[in-house]
Nucleic acid binder design. Structure first.
Lengths: 343, 343
DNA sequence: TTGTAGGCGTTATCAC
DNA sequence: GTGATAACGCCTACAA
């Protein structure tokens, strides 16, 4: 009532009818005379009446609001996902409440608490890097509360998920490098406690195996934080000395790849002639760097869309009953640019 | 009640006390026996009681929710702003409802409507490119509804705003180019119906004037959509033929600059030797492209923080009474990288 | 120290 | 066709 907003009562009083009549008139319920309807609607228009969604939420025990829990908004990938979420939610009359966890478990807990307090109808989750125990989600799942996990999946049964085929994406990328004639392909991997990190590594390993290349365990180097600087340092160290140096890099994501490329360039290696590079995620910058970075694109917007569609279906009890698992896996696409084209 | 959540009533019934007693006990109101308090709190804990924020909103006519209206979430700048907003809101117990307009006025209207329906306590706005009439905001401002405009400002009096000093940022950038010895500096400008576009152009113009360089009106080329491709095409055309070609580009933002750089490179111009380039906004990719792009960095996160702080103050009626204008202007920082260092 | 009642805005149910 | 009432969950002035 900040705005001195008109309520149904105000309209009722002004027209000397009961609030229920006004309510019915506004919603074109049967059994209201056309005359009353008209009067009510006109006055509503005039007073700029706007239904109070909070009162409706209380009344209906439904808020038409969904929550989104995300590690970091500023990651390009996540921002595209949010964009997709927002589109579908908006189109269906749902609001989006956003919380970023900054990869902190504590923040994940409190975000969920406030969201539940706010009676969200369901939640889309990509959990934090710190999250290893999923009790807070299990409790909700046990109550059949609608949750869709996207991008990062917990090790739980009967959950609804949307991911990309990270394994296949990685596999394709490495096969591509092999086809281009690269032989000593290293992997700058992501944290191995996230499924996503494991999947990409597995794709890398299987690609090498399928080409009959023996895997050197030293070729897998973890980049836990995933910053540009980290991978710059790692790459510099790797290529500075020693023999039998790698001739290609498959990076866990584009930032890591970019850091590696900068290191290579500062060491005067030529990309792609001396070293080929492929990243993951198709960040916005990837096509603009020099040479343009080959990468595996993930359909972020689509992930957001799909996850939200599923969530809304669960909310409306069409799908996702207890015990029913739905797992959507979206395909990646290998974008071949200059950084990996030797031939 | 999706979750079969316990309510105050449930607790009251179980303990054979009245709901008001429970309410008071939970909030440590004076005049409740320690014994009752303890019993109530224990049971609340046990039942996993969680206050219903919706009921509270209705009761108090205050939702502890703020709205954010933003053109595009996937713009790096905006995503950093959102991040700042989210941080401050979260720290103060406020929720953030997010709507992106995709630069559509119609969407801006409907987003505001639903947000108001949801009884948001205030709103942070960066309006769409299509918005030229501000009636919908004026109406709210007239009702003393808390609004903070950021980044893009409407031409209205007595409003609360947070921006960066676009003029100064542009001025600094162009002076820098001049100091580097560039003489024929063109400006790939933004849409001139946004203040931001005008400010940057004015900074450009004044910098040239202050250096005694006569401005050639043909040196200002508008890039209305601001895509990479657009600026690639414009730049290609510009540098392909004709004499007395420009020797530097000041671009309205980094994407435009990146498009221009790609065009220059494909025409075999050397950056920065033949042509210097400076962008605006310090997008994430800017330091990673080749050569790294000099740019004017805007403190996006800080904008979000400041705007939210102001909004919360207005909501709590500490500042921002009718007729009081607060305009925060944050300073930009020129980041000199390779793309503009000739000397 | 605790209980009662009314109300925030809306609508479903029953009554006239 | 329309009105009165109760209820969603919570808080608080007032009463006891």
């Amino acid at each position: 009532m900040k705005l001195g907003q008109a309520t149904i009562k105000d309209i009722a009083k002004e027209l000397n009818v009961s609030p229920s009549t006004v309510s019915r008139a506004l919603k074109d319920y049967p059994g209201i005379s056309d005359e009353t309807k008209k009067k009510v609607k006109e006055l509503a228009e005039q007073l700029n009446y706007r239904p109070n969604a909070v009162a409706l939420s209380l009344r209906k025990s439904k808020s038409f609001t969904i929550g989104v829990i995300i590690p970091e908004i500023v990651h390009f990938f996540f921002s595209t996902v949010i964009s997709g979420i927002e589109e579908v939610a908006f189109a269906n009359g749902y609001n989006v409440i956003l919380c970023q966890t900054n990869e902190k478990l504590s923040r994940e807990h409190s975000s969920i608490e406030t969201m539940l307090s706010n009676q969200i109808d369901g939640v889309l989750v990509s959990f934090s890097r710190e999250t290893t125990d999923f009790g807070h989600f299990e409790k909700l799942l046990g109550l059949n509360f609608p949750i869709v996990f996207f991008d990062r999946l917990p090790d739980l049964e009967n959950i609804t998920t949307v991911t990309v085929n990270d394994y296949q994406g990685a596999f394709d990328a490495v096969i591509h490098l092999i086809q281009q004639g690269y032989k000593r392909i290293i992997h700058l991997s992501g944290p191995q406690n996230l499924a996503i990190g494991k999947m990409r590594k597995d794709g890398y390993l299987d690609a090498l195996k399928s080409a009959g290349i023996k895997v050197n365990p030293e070729w897998i180097i973890e980049c836990p934080t995933g910053t540009e600087k980290e991978s710059f340092d790692i790459t510099t160290k790797l290529f500075q000395n020693g023999e039998n140096k790698p001739d290609a890099i498959f990076a866990h994501h584009d930032i890591v790849a970019a850091g590696a490329m900068m290191a290579l360039k500062s060491l005067k290696y030529k990309i792609p002639e001396d070293v080929g590079v492929v990243g993951f995620s198709n960040w916005q910058f990837s096509s603009m760097i020099d040479p343009p970075l080959s990468t595996v694109s993930q359909p972020g917007f689509k992930i957001g869309e799909e996850a939200t569609k599923l969530l809304l279906e669960m909310i409306n009890r069409k799908k996702g009953q207890i015990g029913e698992a739905i797992n959507v896996v979206l395909e990646t696409e290998l974008l071949v640019r200059k950084s990996s084209v030797k031939i």
